[in-house]
Design a protein around this nucleic acid. Structure first.
Lengths: 259, 259
DNA sequence: TGAGGCCGGTTGTCTAGACAAGCAGTCATG
DNA sequence: CATGACTGCTTGTCTAGACAACCGGCCTCA
């Protein structure tokens, strides 16, 4: 074991330093799937911190899915790939950048309109309350990936039309100008066929397979703030999900009560 | 506030009793979305337990998504629906029963075969190691929903062919006979068009929209045990996801480009 | 009016212990 | 050889504190 030293004067919490150190060792291959993590007491003693602090680090690794612990036996590295965790709320921009591609947008329209019934119901607004609609073609490099229509209550971002350059990242602008950050989103996915309009915008044949997304994004506390409908090319887009069986497992960071 | 009493002699941990008590109050409507939970110190004092124990209860509520806390302000009930959590690993049987439909299966084949390359690589087996293949048409009532092919290493369930009636629930049989329980699964979804064979089996026109699923299920510790490829009707199936934004920028999963 | 400082309340982090419960051996006994 | 008790190690739960960081409102002062 390397003589890993805790920086007690850092602003970074100790448990977080420990967590990062263990993640590093996993990444470097020093800890392989199935390997036991050093026991809590040993870590506690060798690092000179309380056992509860070590536990907090290990617990966070467990809830990330990187490790799992078994009472009476120890804590072990799980064989899970880090790259494939639960899907996140990410903007198109973030998603493309993570893949090393250059995200671009072609703006079709950007204006204020009274909310259609579908939109006002989803966002829990009064009927016909003004919403900002941003309609964009999404491109990776030069090739079109999908068409997106976002709807935001004008009340929450009154001067977005003048503040925001619609070719940039909407999520980034919302965060910078209004402190709005999406915390989670509910998404519905359907399989469909490209319409005549889709086919023109996405440059695929009529009847080509497409994904139809409907997404409702929420901020802290469960208030919905963005409604998105989009059509993505089925030949260039793929959904990857991690499904979990027990929510209980997340609860206590390990094996909780087995009922 | 009700004089809620902790049972100190129960086998149920105290933090869990507190968590359940708060969940009850939310369910009964005493605590509504946006409401603050009593502060940790107050709970700690009124229940006569340590603050760390209260914190463990609140933390578990937060990781369930039921509540969220803000430093310096308090802990609040979030507006999230419990029923709509992340997608779960569920068998077709469980999924249909949850919707109040009668799941049925028509077995197309059930036999041992050497693993194809795609299968052996996914399940991390030796090339051509024997696997059990179960091919089924899935029906809800009388109408076909999809076609599924499951692959399991024979090593893990040697006498499954004789033990298991393939018209029943595979997951239930694996749990009862071998103690195998799927803990999580990685799923890939693509949009496609029905082939001639699909169209016959699913009773849809050739070229109708379909979902193509590829699923790899894991047990405790990350060992893969089941590989499934399936085709589902796009007109009768819909995917609902809850996406979350993770605070730490470690993970880079999600939907992505076909590479 | 506006800016800055202070203060009480809240969550976040951390300590140094304690006992219980589960697991895997070893060892003695039948 | 089989069985059960014992022992050492590990994680799970819990305590009674401590200080730090942060928030919002209030007050003072320019």
């Amino acid at each position: 074991m390397l003589p890993f030293a805790i920086d007690r004067h850092s602003v970074v919490p100790i448990y977080y330093q420990i967590q990062q150190h263990l993640l590093d060792r996993i990444h470097r291959g020093e800890l392989k799937p199935g390997d036991p993590v050093p026991p809590e007491q040993e870590l506690s003693a060798s690092l000179g911190v309380s056992r509860m602090t070590v536990r907090q680090a290990l617990k966070s690794l467990c809830s990330l899915g990187v490790a799992y612990s078994r009472r009476g036996r120890g804590t072990f590295i799980s064989g899970m790939k880090l790259e494939k965790n639960c899907r996140q709320v990410r903007s198109f921009t973030e998603e493309m950048q993570a893949l090393g591609l250059r995200p671009r947008s072609k703006v079709l329209s950007f204006r204020v309109r009274p909310a259609a019934r579908e939109v006002s119901e989803a966002l829990r607004l009064r009927p016909k309350e003004p919403v900002i609609r941003l309609e964009r073609i999404r491109l990776a490099g030069a090739s079109p990936m999908g068409v997106e229509s976002s709807y935001l209550p004008q009340r929450l971002c009154p001067d977005l039309l003048s503040q925001f350059d619609p070719r940039g990242s909407l999520y980034q602008a919302l965060w910078q100008h209004y402190g709005i950050q999406m915390l989670f989103a509910d998404e519905t996915v359907e399989a469909g066929l490209a319409s005549a309009q889709d086919s023109q915008r996405l440059r695929v044949p009529v009847g080509a397979p497409v994904f139809l997304f409907t997404r409702l994004s929420y901020v802290h506390g469960g208030q919905p703030v963005e409604y998105v409908k989009s059509v993505y090319r089925g030949d260039r887009y793929k959904i990857v999900n991690r499904l979990t069986r027990l929510n209980r497992a997340l609860l206590t960071g390990g094996s909780g009560l087995v009922t």
